[in-house]
Design a protein around this nucleic acid. Structure first.
Lengths: 247, 247
DNA sequence: CGTGGTCGGTGCACTTGTGAACACATCGGG
DNA sequence: CCCGATGTGTTCACAAGTGCACCGACCACG
């Protein structure tokens, strides 16, 4: 198992990188650099030339923010180890549209967009993998658009906490009410009330600067199904990067 | 002008196709087929294999819809002659995530994804153009996500009417309150009230099945700036498909 | 000319979310 | 040990949006 010829080996803990077979990973590996990024680190600003791709590893999490006239940024999507950020759709060398910040710090693998593109030129499956991930990313944003249009704050708050929990693998989600409020684009006092509602039903406890989820199932029943819809698309699209039959 | 060597000639009235120089357009032209599509025609359904690219021409308009648990579809974005639909990000041969329907009928140019990909393989500028448009499409969806999170129904309704007017070039926008309501993901009676508010200020008149915009500037002042933000990104990204200096 | 179906305008009771205000809890640093 | 900064719980008056009901207007069709 540890020397499985097509296995992930000791690669960075990122799903895209681990999906690759050795031959394909070998095209990227030499250029990959593993770094640590703290929370609140700014990875890209609107208008920046995108030259580096970041792969969140382990529990690291980044957030795409869109500015608005009031100066308050609104969060649109989260990306963790299931994906990557930077030039995924545009292939780089274009001005970024969103601000991208590290939400939960940790390790990131990164490489230059030009090197990723060079590797893609040599491997059909690399092209497939990134085209498919780009499609998943787009689907994720579409789902968020719909979610923001029709789901209640309570549903979206529950969704957010679940997805953070999902990626960090911890029942304790560090998060102030203030942060949650700005991410959902709502007032702070209302999020406090929503949390109060969850706490009244023993779904979670609140600490200063964090929530502790006690009953994930109950929380899931309060959330919308948007996360599940997107996960389904990830599953059906990212399967099939390699021809069926093996792997 | 009519025989400008790099000009659009008599091409379909679609911005992407008209941006191309003759040499690049020649790679697509032979495979392009111009068809007429009526309103409400379904172009793609979730799960469909995407094999055809459609380029809306003239006043044609399509809508990306995301389903939800209630069966009510929610509109996310509109695409007209500034863009194209079908495999733009995924390069085709993947299950579609959104339902895509024709909102306003008219002519569409279309061709098989495989032929578009073959042409892209031969031309760097074709690859650039579509990568850049893909980036713009993504930006458009991001902006919609933020818009749905923080802007009022009135702002979004105004935005919708303006963008429909923009693309059809007509002050009369065929649209029932019911349609507008389901697109915005809100109740019908409330949209009636919003329209009533606009009418009370002489911004528009309402007909059965349509609104007639009387004062576009006033309507713009009631709308959010999301359309303008996205247009700015289109301008800055799609400029530069061809190396600077000429064109 | 009449009739039935869709569409639009409005009243009403209700829920959701806003924004400001204030008191209190918690935490780190001097 | 106190202090100031930040985070939390709660109240209140208000605005935004819901869902239903009902009536009248418009339109296509026979």
């Amino acid at each position: 198992m540890s020397k499985h010829p097509d296995g992930p080996g000791d690669r960075p803990d990122n799903n895209l990188l681990r999906t690759l077979r050795d031959a394909d990973f070998a095209l990227l590996g030499p250029y990959l650099e593993v770094t640590a990024q703290d929370a609140n680190q700014l990875l890209y600003s609107p208008g920046d030339n995108v030259e580096i791709v970041h792969f969140p590893c382990g529990p690291s999490l980044v957030s795409y923010l869109v500015g608005n006239e009031d100066g308050r940024d609104v969060e649109t999507i989260l990306v963790g180890r299931e994906g990557a950020v930077g030039g995924i759709v545009s292939f780089g060398h274009l001005p970024a549209y969103c601000r991208i910040v590290v939400k939960y710090g940790g390790s990131f693998a990164r490489l230059r967009v030009t090197q990723l593109e060079a590797a893609k030129a040599k491997s059909l499956t690399l092209r497939y993998l990134f085209a498919r991930y780009a499609d998943c990313l787009l689907a994720q944003v579409f789902q968020s658009t719909a979610c923001n249009a029709i789901h209640s704050i309570e549903q979206r708050a529950a969704k957010w906490i679940l997805s953070a929990m999902d990626r960090t693998g911890d029942h304790v989600v560090p998060l102030t009410h203030e942060q949650l409020a700005t991410m959902l684009g709502v007032g702070r006092s209302y999020t406090s009330r929503v949390m109060q509602g969850f706490r009244a039903e023993q779904i979670l406890e609140t600490r200063r600067g964090a929530v502790v989820v006690r009953d994930p199932e109950a929380l899931k029943s309060r959330a919308c199904l948007c996360n599940e819809a997107v996960k389904g698309h990830f599953d059906s699209v990212l399967r099939g990067v390699y021809p069926a039959g093996e792997d």
